[in-house]
């Protein structure tokens, strides 16, 4: 089981590494995005509602915007990467499971690939940010980026196994990311400090990154909120993946209608 899982994760990551468009997007889009916001937004004080202390944090608007622009970039890229792979691999994953790859292994490999991709993309985005602004706590910024990347990776998986049209999936990712990350940024949205925004996926990650990045510690509540979104999307995506890779007679466990005898099916999978 373990070696099959390692094999599955390895090939999932090799597949991601061969997604040259996504990698190109990552290498260019993240620094360009940070740079653009850095030159467009003038320095100046802006208030950010910190959930942990229920106080408004006075920070530099340019720094805050450069930090929050990273969320915009990584949510789009990670969701695209995972969504594209999930859609492309639907029939292939099914064939692997029919061939005997245990579904728990396939499911665990999907989850692990999301974690690795999210970790690497968020690390890269946090490192790129260093070129435009030096946060007080690099680790907190990376953690905030990681939490959002995990959430959007899981969303990418959910859409990849759920929506029938590639275009529909891409549009959904763009719309969700745009609404979510833009509404959280005080410079782009004067209502960004409203309480109702706590119900959005990027709220927790942004609280973690902004609070830590400006030297006010890492709020545990933000981490919990972010993980709830991640786990919610992940479980929904994996349940649909599990259902879609089912085999009706695998290993003789399935039965067909009460009116017909049980299926005494084979002891090994199909190719």
């Amino acid at each position: 089981m373990i070696s099959a899982w390692v094999t599955s994760v390895r090939y999932a990551l090799i597949e991601q590494a061969r997604n040259r468009f996504a990698l190109g997007l990552l290498l260019i889009f993240v620094p360009v995005w940070d740079w653009l916001f850095g030159i467009l937004i003038p320095p100046g004080p802006v208030a950010f509602n910190l959930q942990s202390s229920h106080a408004f944090l006075q920070v530099d608007g340019r720094d805050l915007t450069v930090l929050t622009s990273g969320f915009n970039a990584i949510t789009l890229i990670v969701a695209f990467m995972i969504f594209a792979a999930a859609r492309r691999d639907g029939a292939f994953d099914r064939r692997l499971v029919l061939a005997g790859l245990p579904r728990p292994v396939a499911v665990a490999a999907k989850a692990a690939a999301i974690v690795v991709v999210a970790a690497l993309v968020s690390l890269y985005a946090a490192l790129v940010l260093e070129a435009f602004w030096r946060p007080v706590a690099f680790g907190a910024v990376w953690l905030g980026y990681l939490l959002d990347a995990l959430t959007y990776g899981a969303l990418g998986l959910l859409l990849g196994v759920l929506v029938s049209s590639e275009l529909a999936g891409f549009f959904l990712i763009i719309m969700v990311s745009l609404i979510d990350t833009t509404l959280q940024a005080p410079i782009e949205n004067p209502l960004a400090n409203k309480d109702f925004l706590a119900g959005f996926p990027s709220y927790g990650p942004m609280q973690v990154a902004v609070s830590g990045g400006f030297g006010h510690g890492v709020p545990g509540g933000g981490i919990v909120l972010a993980l709830l979104w991640f786990v919610g999307f992940l479980v929904a995506g994996l349940v649909i993946f599990w259902w879609r890779t089912r085999a009706w007679n695998a290993r003789g466990r399935r039965r067909v209608r009460a009116s017909t005898p049980s299926v005494a099916a084979g002891n090994a999978g199909a190719g």
Partner: peptide, 20 residues
């Protein structure tokens, strides 16, 4: 091959299966 569920009927398979 087990890739599709029938509405009725049964399949018995004795041995390993290869499906192209």
């Amino acid at each position: 091959a087990g890739a599709l569920r029938p509405d009725e009927g049964r399949v018995e398979l004795d041995g390993t299966l290869g499906y192209c």
